[in-house]
C-alpha cells in the first residue's frame, strides 16, 4: 500500500520527463542523440526579457541555416549568476561543442568560463563583456566578444538629448542594477555626452534594476521630488516604458523627453506614438545570429576576430 504513491509518482515523472524529452523543441531532440552533429549552446541572462528573446530568435535562424543544433537555456532571474553558472556546468556535462554566453555577472561568471576552457569548449561572449582583469587573473580564455558598444550607445542617447532640449534642461536617469557593466557603460556614455553643456543638469540618477514596475515607481518618486524634470534617460526600454506610464499618470505626457535603450518592439511603438522620444537599437537578433555563425565557423576551424561590433542606431 505504501509504495503505491511512489509508483504513481514514478509514472507521472516518467511521462512528464519523457514528454519533455520528446518535445518539438529542436534543441531537445539532441538531448539523447548526442551524435547528431555539433550542438551549440546559447545561455542568455534570462528569457523573460524581449531583448534576449530576440537574441534567441536570431540565433535559431542561424542554427537552422547552418544545420546545427542549438540549445537555449537561461535562469529565471537576470541577476541570478549562481543559477546561470549551474546551467553552464550542466551544459559542460552535456559536452556541447560551443558555448555562447551573455554573462549575468561580468566577474562572477569567470570561474565557469574557466571550467568550459578545461573541457575544451570554446566560449563566445555576447552582449555584456567579461571583466578583463578578472578573466586575465583566472587565466580563462574567450574566443570573441559579439556585441554593441554600450558606451557608444549611451553617448548617442546623450547627444540626442542635448539636441532635443536645445542645451537647456533638467534630466533624470534610471540606472540598471548597480555594478552591471552594461548599464554602467550606457549611463557613463550618456553623462559624457552631456558634459560641456552647462545648461543641462542631471537632477536625479536612481537604479530601477532593469525592471518595468520599478521604472514606474522610481520615476514617479523622481517626479514628486523634481516636478520640473523634462528629460529622462533609462538604461533599458523596460524601465523607460514603466516611466512612460508614470508620466501619463501624472498627466505630463509629452512634457518629458523619454529616451530608452534596446529598441524593443513596444518601445519602437511608443516612439511612433510620441510617448517616447527615442530609443537606441542594439539589434539583439543580429547578435544572436552573428554569434551562432561565428561559432559554426570556429568549429570548422576558421579564424574568428576577437571583437565583433554590432551596429547601434538611434530610433526616433
Amino acid at each position: 500500500m505504501k509504495f503505491t504513491p511512489v509508483l504513481l509518482f514514478a509514472a507521472v515523472s516518467l511521462s512528464l520527463l519523457a514528454g519533455c524529452g520528446r518535445s518539438p523543441d529542436p534543441a531537445a531532440s539532441a538531448g539523447s542523440a548526442a551524435a547528431a552533429g555539433p550542438v551549440i549552446a546559447l545561455v542568455p541572462k534570462t528569457l523573460n526579457n524581449p531583448f534576449f528573446i530576440d537574441m534567441q530568435r536570431g540565433a535559431e535562424e542561424a542554427a537552422r541555416a547552418a544545420g546545427v543544433t542549438l540549445v537555449v537555456q537561461a535562469a529565471e532571474r537576470e541577476t541570478d549568476v549562481e543559477r546561470q553558472m549551474q546551467i553552464i556546468e550542466n551544459l559542460i556535462q552535456r559536452k556541447v561543442s560551443a558555448l555562447i554566453l551573455a554573462p549575468s555577472g561580468s566577474r562572477e561568471i569567470v570561474p565557469v568560463v574557466l571550467k568550459a576552457n578545461q573541457a575544451d569548449i570554446p566560449v563566445l561572449i555576447v552582449d555584456t563583456r567579461l571583466d578583463a582583469a578578472a578573466l586575465q587573473a583566472s587565466g580563462g580564455k574567450t574566443v570573441t566578444f559579439i556585441g554593441s558598444d554600450n558606451h557608444e550607445g549611451g553617448k548617442i542617447a546623450g547627444q540626442f538629448a542635448v539636441e532635443r532640449l536645445g542645451g537647456q534642461g533638467r534630466v533624470a536617469v534610471l540606472e540598471g542594477i548597480a555594478g552591471h557593466e552594461t548599464g554602467d557603460a550606457r549611463v557613463r556614455g550618456f553623462r559624457e555626452a552631456l558634459r560641456g553643456h552647462p545648461g543641462i543638469t542631471i537632477v536625479a540618477s536612481q537604479p530601477a534594476n532593469w525592471e518595468r514596475d520599478q521604472g514606474y515607481t522610481v520615476f514617479q518618486n523622481i517626479l514628486q521630488a523634481n516636478p520640473t524634470v523634462n528629460a529622462l534617460f533609462a538604461a533599458n526600454d523596460l524601465m523607460a516604458l514603466g516611466a512612460v506610464e508614470a508620466i501619463a499618470a501624472a498627466g505630463k505626457t509629452g512634457k518629458v523627453t523619454v529616451i530608452g535603450f534596446d529598441a524593443q518592439d513596444e518601445a519602437r511603438a511608443a516612439v511612433k506614438a510620441g510617448k517616447m522620444a527615442a530609443t537606441i537599437a542594439q539589434n539583439p537578433a543580429l547578435m544572436g545570429r552573428t554569434a551562432v555563425e561565428r561559432a559554426v565557423a570556429l568549429l570548422k576551424g576558421e579564424p574568428v576576430p576577437a571583437d565583433i561590433g554590432v551596429s547601434i542606431e538611434l530610433v526616433k
Partner: peptide, 27 residues
C-alpha cells in the same frame, strides 16, 4: 540538472519544477 541536460526549454522547466514540488508534498 536533468532538465538542463535534456535541453528542456527554460519556461517548461519552471512548470516542471513547480509541479514536482506540489507532487512531492501531495504524495
Amino acid at each position: 540538472n536533468g532538465l538542463n541536460l535534456l535541453g528542456v526549454s527554460s519556461y517548461v522547466q519552471q512548470v516542471v519544477i513547480g509541479a514536482v514540488i506540489i507532487a512531492a508534498v501531495l504524495l
